[in-house]
């Protein structure tokens, strides 16, 4: 019976997916529960801030600059048709602060820092480092997972803010310095259009949520990876794919909640 087989496959997949979501949620709560030492011994978190935050700086800054410059070019081309080139500043800033900053920074973060986290923890598991830690009566969630989690949650909004700031500068470079849009109206239109609470704080909130989601996915995939070479590489791929999808879905939900009616 091919039909019965199809249903069986669908059922199996669904049960599996739900089971994994449950495991991930449990993992997330355990991480929160054992987060004490990440703050009591903050140097553990600082070490991870270096490998997640500082190491992602270059890609974030370069990508932000180019995205901003492209926005400047494309925005100018479009706005010119309606004779409103002076709105370039507000267009660049709003796109970056509301959407592109948090989303693109999170996507880059997922592929730069998230995949590294998964691979590192997966390998730790494959080489029995996590079992060794457990046998030494040290809780691996408190010692390995939680500091990485908090490092991700702290660095994501900072990276997104840098992405947006550099992007605005890129838009300024192309729009004002190269094309010659009036500098005064570029900045004043921008300031008139961008609201601190509605746009900037909401953007920060978004990147905070994305940071949480990406690090939880990356850490869970690593912790859950089969202890083999294929297992770890598969988990790394899944981290990037799942977190990218989750970022985009969460972005829709958050945008619908935050910017509805304005």
């Amino acid at each position: 019976m091919p039909a019965a087989k199809t249903f069986k496959v669908i059922g199996h997949r669904t049960i599996n997916a739900v089971w994994r979501i449950g495991m991930a949620a449990r993992f997330f709560f355990l991480t929160l529960m054992y987060s004490g030492s990440s703050f009591r011994r903050f140097h553990l978190t600082v070490k991870e801030l270096f490998s997640t935050g500082v190491m992602s700086l270059i890609i974030i800054i370069v990508a932000g600059l180019f995205v901003g410059m492209v926005l400047g070019l494309q925005g100018y081309e479009t706005l010119k048709r309606y004779g409103s080139e002076s709105a370039l500043g507000s267009m660049v800033a709003l796109s970056l602060v509301r959407e592109l900053g948090p989303v693109v920074a999170a996507l880059l973060f997922a592929s730069r820092a998230g995949s590294a986290m998964t691979a590192e923890i997966g390998l730790m598991k494959a080489t029995e480092q996590i079992s060794a830690m457990e046998m030494m009566a040290v809780n691996p969630i408190a010692r390995i997972v939680a500091p990485r989690f908090w490092a991700g949650v702290i660095s994501m909004p900072l990276l997104a803010a840098m992405f947006s700031a550099v992007g605005v500068f890129g838009g300024y470079l192309v729009g004002v310095v190269q094309i010659g849009v009036d500098e005064g109206s570029f900045w004043s239109q921008m300031q008139a259009a961008v609201d601190f609470r509605d746009d900037i704080l909401n953007g920060v909130m978004k990147s905070f949520v994305f940071g949480t989601a990406v690090t939880v996915i990356a850490l869970f995939e690593g912790y859950d990876a089969p202890p083999t070479a294929e297992g770890v590489s598969g988990a790394t791929t899944r981290t990037v794919v799942t977190s990218s999808l989750v970022i985009l879905m969460l972005d829709f939900v958050l945008t619908a909640i935050m910017f509805r009616g304005n």
Partner: peptide, 18 residues
């Protein structure tokens, strides 16, 4: 890194935002 991130936020708030 942290100071740079906060500086970017302040810049967004003061220079880009209102």
């Amino acid at each position: 890194f942290v100071v740079g991130g906060i500086a970017a936020l302040v810049m967004l708030a003061m220079k880009v935002g209102n």
